[in-house]
Design a protein around this nucleic acid. Structure first.
Lengths: 353, 353
DNA sequence: TGTAACCGATAAATCGATTTTTCACTGTTG
DNA sequence: CAACAGTGAAAAATCGATTTATCGGTTACA
């Protein structure tokens, strides 16, 4: 009984043509805005379109085009605010230009990334916005190059010799975090991250380290990274603290690391910022309502998205020239999780503050 | 200089045909697995496919089909874990069946929801998974009905007379929350929510209320809802507490409400669970690392996604019959944010208990 | 006066696959 | 030996739009 009616096939351009008493070509021209159509005929076409509720079939319309009006977007995941916002923005921007966005998640797998790309190539997408799992030198970028695809790389990239890139200026933001922490007197800081995202993580680490050392040459910076997933990071962190290491601040280079650090603090009964300070790369809505609010680096998602789309469409429209590498500035939000070392009431654990 | 090479147009079925010395029809049949092709010719076709790296153009392939192998997904937003996971799951399931998923965000707007749906109809998608902004009676569902589209409604729906629906069993989960809170001795509970999502919010509220009253007829349940956005909710909550109301527990019917409650607690210096208990509908990764961890209702995202796709494809393949309304069970995670009233070391104002 | 440009519109080709129709050829049977 | 059934494959139609070639009829220009 359900949904069995309304199966009437939709009217095609030929239906419009016969209703208006003209040929299909004329209809196509009227709808494309060609001016060499007699006004009277144009009006009859528009009337027929109106009467039949005709809408162009984008699939048929794209058939002859070498580049279809489709943009592919490949993200490592959809579950985080960052990539969620990114997809929302990209979709809106594609739509504005009359394109359809097809988004897919590589689920942090380079193999899958390449498969998705191959499928998008099958669709002959006009362009691709790729947020690579690792960096700009992965198999996916190679595939794009080998097949002459048009694309922009974003987020976990620095620059590329074939594609335009857009990412947050991690190094500058990390330097600002360094100024903040060292400025407050921290002289033993732990940095945690995932090394697999080589390009950006290294930029963040170096940006932080060089600025911190410039401000205080005797600052001690420990680094804990894990190659693949976040779980090894958790156990490394546990070991590190278990050995009695007590940095006065932690800078996490990625969102999940911030969660890991928080949960480890919690396990030990340490409180921010009295027992230890915390800053995380990447902001999230919950960070301002936790107790205390977590200081964070906010990435300019909208700017990254719009710059990426601008660059992409420039290429789609045939622009040539060397690829550009854009770095968009981040914002560092200093919140309550950052204090001066040893300034808090500092008892040991338990429920307080 | 960038990306100017490799513009070689891809080989079509005709290229394969001529390389294999057969007709295009034969190539199509071989690739479709038709057995009436002489093995020798089939092999030559496969060789040519291999040599040319030929892949079927899904767009051209879909041209003649009334229903294209495309599934549309419309979500109210992409920024939350819930819908992020949902899209990831739906995409994987569509891919498994050889379909392409086109996802779009309605950005909590019913008008946009309908526009997106119209565009998907233009694409002649085989089916749509719609998570409506409000409920099953919105303009989008009407549009689908009026145009004979195939679809499944998920999340903020209960049941419909035209479409299959799949959602979390909010009422049962809320009843379980009621058992938990009343069981711990809470007799004055505040429930907060957004009324716009009428269907499910009402189910959650009623599930909670009826169970709570059944267990303790004298329990006092206050309700604060806001019609449109979350900001009015925040100020209502502020007013409510400002008037001296001191419930011993808060149950938030939506994730953003949980954030609002937390931030309001924080503003007042109240701690969970000593000063007040908190349970939220919808889980998030950060909830288990905050101090304290927040008790939450976990929705079965994967089950909702896979049930929705199963039902959808059944309809796509022509199944008829009355629409089904599925309710998938949730899991209630009791975490540290829930305690017994007045049991904390640190009870604040003199609330009843 | 002959050629070219211009008009407005239509017929036809095109895109790349699928599906239906047609056809040539083999082998069987009455 | 003619009628017939069965094979395997090619030819053609189809999907719905866009684009190119073409057409008859004027007007402009050399």
């Amino acid at each position: 009984m359900a949904q069995h009616k309304g199966q009437q096939r939709r009217s095609s351009i030929h239906d419009v043509a016969s209703h208006a008493g003209v040929s299909a070509a004329t209809v196509s021209k009227v709808l494309a805005g060609v001016t060499t159509v007699k006004p009277e005929n144009a009006q009859r076409v528009l009337d027929a379109v109106e009467r039949l509720g005709y809408r162009v079939d984008p699939l048929a319309s794209d058939m002859r085009r070498a580049k279809r009006r489709i943009i592919g977007a490949i993200m490592p995941e959809f579950e985080s605010e960052f990539f969620g916002q990114m997809v929302t923005e990209l979709e809106g921007l594609a739509e504005q230009r009359g394109y359809t966005l097809v988004a897919a998640s590589s689920r942090e797998s380079e193999a899958r990334e390449k498969e998705i790309l191959a499928r998008m190539h099958d669709w002959r997408v006009a362009g691709v916005v790729l947020a690579p799992v690792r960096n700009e030198h992965g198999p996916a970028a190679d595939f794009m190059k080998a097949n002459g695809m048009t694309g922009v790389l974003i987020d976990r990239v620095l620059s590329d010799d074939a594609f335009d890139t857009v990412s947050a200026d991690s190094a500058a933001a990390s330097a600002e975090v360094a100024r903040m922490l060292v400025g407050k007197g921290h002289s033993h800081i732990l940095v945690i991250g995932l090394a697999e995202q080589a390009a950006t993580v290294r930029a963040r680490l170096e940006g932080f380290r060089s600025q911190a050392l410039a401000l205080n040459p005797s600052v001690r910076i420990d680094v804990i990274t894990s190659e693949v997933s976040v779980e090894p990071l958790r156990s490394s962190l546990r070991d590190y603290f278990g050995q009695g290491e007590r940095p006065t601040a932690v800078y996490s280079l990625l969102l999940k690391g911030t969660l890991v650090a928080l949960s480890e603090f919690r396990r030990r009964g340490w409180h921010c910022p009295d027992d230890i300070s915390l800053v995380g790369f990447d902001d999230a809505e919950w960070m301002q309502v936790t107790w205390p609010a977590i200081a964070a680096v906010v990435q300019p998602v909208r700017r990254i998205a719009s710059e990426a789309m601008n660059l992409l469409f420039r290429r789609v429209e045939g622009a040539v020239g060397p690829p550009t590498a854009r770095l968009e500035p981040c914002q560092v939000l200093e919140r309550e999780s950052v204090g001066s070392p040893g300034s808090g009431p500092h008892s040991g654990g338990g429920d307080r503050q």
